[in-house]
Amino acid sequence: MTSKRFFQLAYIYVKANLRVEVSSYYLNYVWWVLEPVFMMTVFYVVFDIMLNQGTQHFVGFLLVGLASWNWFARSVNNSKNSIHDARGLILQVRIPKMFFPFTTVCQDSFKQLFVVALLLLFLLFYPTPVTVCWFALPILLALQFVLNLAVGMFCAAIVPFVPDMRFIVSTVIEILFFATGIFYDLDTMVLPEHRPIIYANPMAGLLKNYRAVLLHGDWPNWFYLLYVAGFSFVFLAVALYLLNRFDNVYPRVCQQ
């Protein structure tokens, strides 16, 4: 399959899946807007109005972290089962198996655009600066897309051979949820000698840079972003190798 044909088919597949996803709801695509609005409203009411606690601008701090983390967690969790869930199609049509985690991440990324738009709208009225540093946001989003794709593809490549991995992946994501600094500032809550270990997790550093850009009006740490890019592309290369190496094996594995 040529690259052009691959991306054309991916576009059609993602578009069809998005339509099917909302076809059972009366409000259809409106839910892509309402869901993040409800989430942001709940956290705003709980943490800013009812509890009135946390760091300065804690609601903005929390929402930026949750928006980024939920995109990562949703993409990886959905991707890890993508090849197994498509076994009916795999047994009928010869198609590169990387197609399924790729389209899954693209589908979740498209919905993330609505979350980002609502988050930016919220921050326009929030007491944090809107600066030229916001132009760095597309770079952060592009890097996270590659990271989501790399981890999602790697998990999708392994799970058909080791089904128990799906539970391990979910558990690791739950652990990282509390170790990535979504609810607290890593630089103030983690001892200096432990920070290199924490920031070895690319999502921890990405969240810090999202907040620097959107909440503090600072440019991201470009050297750290190089690390995230290197980590993501190496992980992606390994995932693509595995998916290509076992492309003809997956149909037999999925039949078991």
Rank of each mutant, 00 (worst) to 15 (best):
V169W: 00
W134Y: 06
M153V: 15
T103F: 07
S109N: 06
I139R: 00
V169Y: 00
L176N: 12
Q8K: 11
A136I: 13
P101K: 01
C155L: 14
F38R: 03
V93N: 10
C254T: 12
F167C: 06
S82M: 11
Y224Q: 10
D85C: 12
V159E: 00
F102E: 05
L215C: 07
V146F: 09
A204F: 08
L176Q: 13
F167D: 10
V213D: 00
Y184L: 06
I90L: 06
N77M: 12
N221C: 12
A136T: 11
A86C: 11
A73G: 12
Y241V: 13
P251W: 02
R211F: 06
V238S: 07
L113G: 14
G88Y: 02
P163H: 07
Y241N: 09
Y241Q: 09
G152E: 05
S68M: 10
F235A: 13
L66W: 11
T104H: 01
P36F: 02
G65T: 01
I197S: 12
V238W: 04
K97H: 15
S82E: 11
P196S: 05
Q256H: 09
F246H: 04
V37N: 06
A142F: 01
Q8V: 15
Y250A: 04
L191P: 15
I49L: 12
Y44N: 07
L186R: 05
V76K: 03
V151C: 01
F38T: 10
V162G: 10
V46W: 11
L113W: 09
F72R: 05
Y44C: 04
C106R: 03
V234S: 03
V30Q: 10
M165H: 10
Y199P: 08
R19L: 11
L240A: 12
T55S: 14
A142M: 00
Y199L: 07
V151L: 01
K111H: 06
S79A: 12
P36N: 06
S232M: 00
I173S: 05
V45N: 07
F58W: 04
V169I: 08
K208H: 15
